[in-house]
Design a protein around this nucleic acid. Structure first.
Lengths: 366, 366
DNA sequence: CTGTTAGCGCTTTCAC
DNA sequence: GTGAAAGCGCTAACAG
């Protein structure tokens, strides 16, 4: 193979990659012909014989196209940016997996950015996406940051779309772009309905801080479901935990555990706990079984939210609301690829969250 | 702001991004000067007044450098490739997080590739990394694939390094490149020693299939630790589970659960179980407590391997071997940045795996 | 200090 | 069906 002969020459000094011109020379054709054979979206056909010779030359030389040069010439690359908070977080990990799936099918190059919750970094990365002349970006982390940040984010997004870039958000970021939203509210309604149907009338809620938009949406779903049944949610039945969406801030679930103990100290008559995130549910399970001597689901039922990968391993296996995260990543990326004519029409795709029934819920005791 | 005036013009037709030439014109300087002010690694200084004018012009026009053009000119981009099996898998998620941390500090652009366990795709992505003229690549998924695949992988890697690219592996992929390895064997030795010290002499092992290199390395560690204490591991005390490293193939841990039941059917006298992955440990916990009526750790101690994010939420919280995955991602990326003179010297960094003590282990009963 | 200029590797009219 | 040639936007010699 050509490669082996190349590596024989100078072991230390980097070679320069083979160029299309070299391929053309070797095949005895013009560079234009070589280009058409190898990447030809030109419309023009190339004769069979020349085609063959070009392909052979490329293979022998180990030709690899220079993507930056192509991007420069075409003034747009096949790069797609993906901005998340933290890929290590299973939530974003699942979204990322979805994006990667489509990227593979559609032959896209994904440029990943992790903001680690820092709004400034998000802006930075958006700039970098523009730098790369990426043709699209998926915004999957955001929502933190103040009004001023929002404005600047909007500006960056506008600048990118002005240049012909496409933007899609996963979750509502208050940005003018296509959006894929997860039905948090509906999921919470379904979870509540499930408990209600099992006879639970005194349900405790574990939620996140009030400024957390996702937590609020879920909580709102609970209120709605209860209201639809002529019931309401007493303030004493709600416990707020700071580590809501961040299991890493509280890897042992101690915050949720303590909150659950306090919740039952206030309201010992609760027959069910609806935790608005799986991490919270894990803490509740521990508190209930280890600290409060309750049996789950015999004494108290527990429902989580998210269906993160570990929920099946909890004890008992957790009944939880399944968020179609990977699907969200897939749909978002597809939205990008879908060329649409009316760039003025902002599209929104809503993905339903359905309940996964496992072993942590059962009929109410009394 | 310039942006707003731009977006006013033609709402539908994409603008062309501002070029350096336009900035130079507006500032009334040459393009060379503009380049030096904005990106000048040229060594040369530019006068304060011109500097100011260039910067002002760039800001007014909303200039964003064209990365592909820069890459073309410099014939190398600041892109780093990262190839993993699946970002949704917490194992790779943690490595990815580490890589992203360094990328942020050192201002790199990360191009992510997920192979979904397909060796062909891995080769594909390596090609794409060359396409982008990336300056380095982190290989974090691999190890599957036959001899022929290995050869081809080696060729691609050689081709990339020949062109001046840097390659670093996380885990040994049988490739000639710098490598960061996790001390699986040492971790298993430490876990075994821990159980031994608690008085356990009849230890059951849950492991993965024999062709799984990681599982084998851990198993080897167990053998070594036992041998060092004059003991050995009876074949009957070892159970093989296929879903070893893939919690998603077995989200409820049913495989490990069944294997644990069989293990205790064969060897009811076991006082401890060392599961060579956390997913396996989760299944063991369920089998022991729910199916076998054992108490953990009073009757049987359980140790896992990996310290994935959910282990603290298991019941009881799992004692497990902590793999410094994020650290591995960090070290790997640093290795790439570290220019070293002797490209012939292959470096290997070994990261220690330490035991995380939690609640699933206790003194042996008898 | 500042400007002129020659490409980097590739695509794509435009001629033949 | 094939080739010649003009740049895409930027950097880095090389002159002044």
């Amino acid at each position: 193979m050509a490669r082996s002969s190349r590596s024989r020459e100078a072991e230390d000094r980097p070679h320069k990659p083979v160029t299309l011109q070299q391929v053309a020379d070797r095949a005895g054709v013009s560079i234009a012909t070589a280009s058409r054979v190898l990447h030809g979206a030109d419309g023009r056909m190339v004769g069979a014989e020349l085609s063959r010779r070009v392909r052979a030359a490329a293979a022998e030389l180990g030709y690899v196209p220079n993507a930056p040069a192509q991007a420069l010439r075409r003034s747009r690359s096949s790069v797609v940016g993906l901005i998340v908070h933290d890929v290590g977080d299973p939530y974003y990990g699942a979204i990322t997996t979805g994006v990667m799936r489509v990227a593979r099918e559609r032959d896209l190059t994904v440029m990943l950015a992790a903001t680690f919750q820092d709004p400034e970094l998000e802006l930075d990365y958006l700039l970098r996406v523009r730098n790369q002349r990426a043709h699209a970006v998926v915004l999957a982390g955001s929502g933190r940051g103040d009004e001023d940040f929002r404005r600047r984010l909007g500006e960056q997004v506008a600048a990118f779309t002005d240049d012909g870039g496409r933007v899609v958000c996963v979750g509502d970021h208050g940005v003018d772009a296509d959006t894929v939203v997860l039905d948090d509210q509906g999921g919470a309604e379904r979870a509540t309905a499930h408990l209600w149907q099992l006879g639970h009338r005194r349900i405790g809620i574990l939620t996140g801080p009030p400024h957390h938009a996702t937590a609020e949406r879920r909580l709102h779903g609970v209120h709605r479901a209860l209201a639809a049944r002529g019931a309401e949610l007493p303030a004493a039945a709600v416990a707020v935990v700071d580590s809501f969406g961040d299991p890493f801030g509280d890897p042992l679930g101690d915050g949720a555990r303590a909150a659950t103990r306090e919740l039952f100290a206030r309201r010992p008559d609760l027959t069910a706990v609806l935790a608005l995130s799986d991490g919270l549910a894990a803490g509740a399970l521990t508190a209930l079984q280890d600290d409060l001597g309750k049996s789950v689901p015999a004494d108290v039922s527990v429902v989580g939210f998210g269906d993160l990968p570990f929920t099946g391993h909890l004890h008992p296996a957790l009944t939880t609301v399944r968020l179609p995260l990977e699907k969200a990543g897939i749909r978002a990326t597809e939205l990008i690829l879908d060329e649409r004519d009316h760039r003025s029409t902002r599209r929104t795709v809503e993905l339903e969250a359905e309940l996964t029934l496992r072993d942590s819920t059962g009929p109410a005791r009394d």
